[in-house]
Design a binder for these strands. Structure first.
Lengths: 350, 350
DNA sequence: CATAGTATCGTAAACGTTTACGGAAGCCAA
DNA sequence: TTGGCTTCCGTAAACGTTTACGATACTATG
C-alpha cells in the first residue's frame, strides 16, 4: 500500500488502537507520545504527532476521563430563563473570556452548566457532580443560604463562588465590592446634599442584596441619616423591574431625592418610568448605578461603577486552580477571599 | 448492623460495585434496575432505587459514556467575549430554556460549549467532536461560509444550526425570518411615505447580514426604489456600533429618513447618537428594529419585531432530535428547514 | 412426569484510554 | 567479558459502566 493517504483521511479514526497499528507501534507508546511523557524517542514522538494530526485523531474524552479520574472540564453553573439572570447582557460572556485565558494554559475546557428554570438547582448540581462531569465548579448567583455550597463541600469537589453567602464552608470566593460601592455612593450623594436616599435590591434572596442594604444603612448612619424602610425597593433584576420601581417611587408621598441601583439591567426601565411620571433623571432624581454596555448611552449618562469583567474572570480562574491539587503549584498561596473593587465613573445622572 | 444509616450516607459512594455489594446483588442487576430494563423483579428494582437515592449514587458519566458510546449531552456552541456575540445573553438564556424543556424529557443535558475569543472556532469544534464530548451540537452565529458545517457533516455528528449559511451540507436549520422582517419593514416605511431607507448589518460575515440586505434591496425595488450603497451601515453588533452608525448617518449629505436595524443591541447607542446630532428618533428619523428586553423602555418606544425565544428553543431541540436515530421516532417527519416568523409590534419610533 | 416457556439474575466481555511494570537493547566502565 | 545504567518500547491491568449470554428456578401445559 502507499505510504499514506490511501483512503482514511476522512476523519474516521476509530481510536488509539487503529492509530497505533497504522504506525506499527504499540498503543502504549502512542499514548505516551501524545501525552508528552518523557520516555519516548523524539523521532517516534514526531511521527506519532504527525500521524495523529493528519488522521484527525484526538483522544476520546470518556476513555481518558475514566482512566485518569479527571475530565479536564470546569463547569460554570448558571440558570436559564429570561427573568432569572440578574446580570445584564454581556456580563457573563466577558467573565468567561477571562476565565478561559487561564484555563487554556492547562488544557482545561470551560463549559456552562445550564440549569433549567424548571429544575431545582440543588438537584441539578447533585446530578452533575455525582456523574463526575467536571473536575471543578464555579458557582454564581449565590443566595443568602445556599445549599449548593454544602453539597460541593461534602463531595469534596473543588469549587469557587462568584458571590458570598451565609452558608460558608470555607471555600474560596470572589465577590464584587458592594460594600465599597454602597459607601462611595452614599458618601457622594450626601456630600451633594441628599438626605433621602433610596436603594434597590433583588426581589429574591440573592446574597448581594443583604450586603448592599446593610452597608448603605451603615454608611447613612455614619452621616447621621437613616434608611427609610419604604425607600428600599425590591424588584426582579430586569428592565420591567426597574419600571416597576419607578412607578412605586413616584407614588410615594415623601419621595427620596436619590436612588442607588445595585443592578444594571433595571436602569433603562427605571429611566423610562421616571420620565413618564414627570421625574427627570439627573434633575429631579439623582441616580447611581452599575456600568453596563448601554449605561453610557442613556440620557443623562449614568453615573456608574465600573469593573473589568475580564480581569475578574482571570482572578476567578486562578483562585479556583489554586485549590486544585493538580494545579496548585502554579498559583501559590493566594488570598482565597477576594473583594473585587469597582471604580466610580461620573456621569450626568447624579 | 442496623438496617440503614450506619455511616455511609455522607455521599462517598464509590461506584455501582459498592452499591451492589451493599445490596448483596450483582452489579448487572443493579445496572438493569437503574436503567429501567424489563428483566428485573419489581421489588428488587425498588430496593435498588431506594438504596441509590439514599446513598446518593448516580452512574459515573465517563464509564457510562464509554460503554454506551453516547454521552447524553448536547452542546450549544457559542463564542465568549463581549464584542462578539451579537445577541445579548438574555437572548440565549431564553432559547436555552426552551431547548431544555424538550431535552429533559429524554434525560439529555444541555451545556454551552464556550469557545474563547482567542481560539479558532473551527479548531475548537474539531477538538470537541473528536473527543466525543457531545452526542449532538447546536451551532449559532452562522457565517456566510462556515467550515464548521462541513466538519460536523464529515464526522457524522448530528447537528442543527440556528442560522443559515451558503455552506449547506443538508443539515437541518432554523433561522429567523429576516426576509419577512425586511419585507414588512420596507413595506411599512414606504407606505408611510419614506423614499430613502437605510439599513444596518453586522460588520463581519454573519450570514444574516446578506439575507437581510438582499431582501431589503428586493423589496425596495418592488416599490420602484433602490437601496443606496451609502445607506448600508456595517457595525459591531453592540451599543458602541449603534452610536457609530448614528454619527456616520448624521454626517451624510443626503440623509435617509428611515433606518431598519437588524440587530437589537445597537438600538440604545443609535438613539443616543442621533439625539446628540440633533436628530429626534421617531420624528426626524423613523426607526424599526428588533425587540429586546429594553426596546419598550426607550423613548420613543421602538417599533420592533418580536418572537418567542422559548418556542424557538423548543423547535430547535425537536428538530435536532428528529435527526438523531435514538430519538427520531418521537419527532416524526418534520420539515428540516424552518423560517421562524416574527411579529411587528408597533411603537412610536416610526 | 416431561417439556417448554418465563421470570429473574449472575458472569464476563466489552468500550478507549493511561500507566505501572518489565524487558530488550545499547553503552560505558571495570 | 561482566555488570550496571540508560533509553526506549511492549504488555497488560486498571477505570466504571452496560449488555449479550447463559444459568437457574419456577410455572404452565401436554
Amino acid at each position: 500500500m502507499a505510504s499514506r493517504g490511501s483512503g482514511e483521511e476522512r476523519g474516521k479514526m476509530k481510536g488509539i488502537r487503529e492509530l497505533a497499528e497504522h504506525l506499527d507501534i504499540s498503543i502504549g507508546t502512542v499514548s505516551r507520545a501524545l501525552n508528552g511523557k518523557p520516555d519516548v524517542n523524539e523521532e517516534t514522538r514526531k511521527r506519532v504527532l504527525e500521524a495523529a494530526e493528519s488522521l484527525g485523531y484526538v483522544a476520546n474524552q470518556s476513555g481518558r476521563a475514566l482512566r485518569k479520574g479527571a475530565t479536564g472540564v470546569i463547569g460554570f453553573m448558571m440558570q436559564t430563563g429570561s427573568e432569572i439572570t440578574g446580570q445584564g447582557d454581556t456580563f457573563f460572556m466577558s467573565v468567561f473570556d477571562g476565565v478561559q485565558t487561564v484555563f487554556a494554559r492547562h488544557k482545561l475546557d470551560l463549559v456552562a452548566l445550564l440549569c433549567s428554570s424548571e429544575e431545582d438547582p440543588n438537584d441539578y448540581l447533585k446530578r452533575v457532580v455525582a456523574r463526575g462531569f467536571a473536575d471543578g465548579i464555579i458557582l454564581s448567583a449565590t443566595r443568602r443560604h445556599d445549599a449548593r455550597f454544602e453539597l460541593l463541600a461534602k463531595r469534596k469537589i473543588p469549587f469557587i463562588t462568584l458571590g458570598r453567602s451565609l452558608t460558608d464552608v470555607g471555600q474560596p470566593w470572589l465577590d464584587l465590592d458592594f460594600e465599597g460601592m454602597a459607601e462611595a455612593s452614599i458618601d457622594r450623594l450626601v456630600a451633594r446634599g441628599h438626605r433621602h436616599v433610596a436603594i434597590t435590591r433583588p426581589h429574591d434572596d440573592m446574597n448581594l442584596g443583604y450586603v448592599f442594604e446593610d452597608q448603605c444603612r451603615a454608611t447613612l448612619a455614619r452621616h447621621g441619616l437613616r434608611l427609610d424602610e419604604r425607600h428600599i425597593f425590591r424588584s426582579t433584576p430586569n428592565e420591567a423591574g426597574g419600571y416597576q420601581i419607578a412607578r412605586e417611587l413616584s407614588a410615594l408621598e415623601t419621595r427620596p431625592t436619590a436612588v442607588v441601583l445595585i443592578n444594571e439591567a433595571i436602569t433603562v426601565g427605571l429611566y423610562r418610568g421616571l420620565v413618564e411620571a414627570g421625574i427627570r433623571p439627573g434633575h429631579d432624581m439623582a441616580i447611581i448605578g452599575r456600568q453596563s454596555p448601554h449605561s453610557q448611552f442613556l440620557s443623562p449618562r449614568l453615573t456608574s461603577f465600573r469593573l473589568s469583567l475580564r480581569d475578574l474572570g482571570i482572578a476567578l480562574a486562578e483562585s479556583l486552580l489554586a485549590t486544585m491539587p493538580a494545579f496548585a503549584h502554579f498559583y501559590p498561596a493566594r488570598s482565597a477571599r477576594l473583594l473585587w473593587p469597582m471604580d466610580l465613573v461620573p456621569g450626568e445622572s447624579d
